[in-house]
Amino acid sequence: MRKSQIRNPKHRTENCPLSPRLNYFRIFLTFARNSIVRDMTFRANFLIDCLSTITWSLMDLGFYIFVVFRQTSQIGRDTGWGEWEFYTFLATTKLINGLVQAFFMPNCEEVSELVRSGNFDFALLKPIDTQFLVSLRKIDWPALSHIGVGGILLSISLWHITQREIDPAQLTLLTGVAYIFYILCGVAILYSLMISLAATSIWLGRNESLYDFWFYITNFSRYPMEIYSGDVGTPLRWICTFIIPVLIVVNVPARILAQPLAAETPEARFLLFFTPAAAVACLAISRWVFYRALRSYRSASS
């Protein structure tokens, strides 16, 4: 197969009666169905997975309820991240992580093994876009319980933020739409990071610490960006915003809901424009990295 064909799958779909886009959507639905069938085969395991996800989230939440907010009224001086604002932030983290873990994590984790065992050949031979196939083949349905937990936490926090007597937040339909939009931007950034890391396993032959690496980097996105200040914090904040933009993943959508007024400052305004641009740039770079890495792939089978 010529490389141009690998890169450009449209060649193969010319005779197909359906338009390529519809095709891809249907393939995605098939993947989703396959995954749910597989999950339902081991129902007890599925339930345990969901339960452990929920327990993990509750323990994490317990740390903030029983330790952090027993001691302080907000995270950082004059940052506006009070208890309920922070829970909104936490819920946003859960939503974004849930989406990434459900759709992309199980697949990207597997790339390393596919490359090592030579089974990556099968992905290359399929007449669809390789990146699409590799990224969305499996869906981890139990990870969607993150979204359930996040959704509940978000509703409770928003109720408190909007219904409180002092300084209630005003939320409009536009805020909601913007929130969803920026969450998707965040997911796009994290996905790009993950698929790029997975692609490095094509060069290295094996990359087992992928998950660790991803965990360590995204760890920076888990707290409000205001906490990174001072001699070390400011450069760190700059790096995690402009070089590896993990800091804006949760911060930008969370601020829109939790602190709509703070989203009006010039710096925050800039981030509102910067985030979609960063998301698009990350997607483009990750696609370039992925196909660049594909060229170095050497089949391990006969």
Partner: peptide, 9 residues
């Protein structure tokens, strides 16, 4: 950094 922010408050 998180604890620093908590103590700062």
């Amino acid at each position: 950094f998180l604890w620093f922010a908590i103590f700062a408050n």
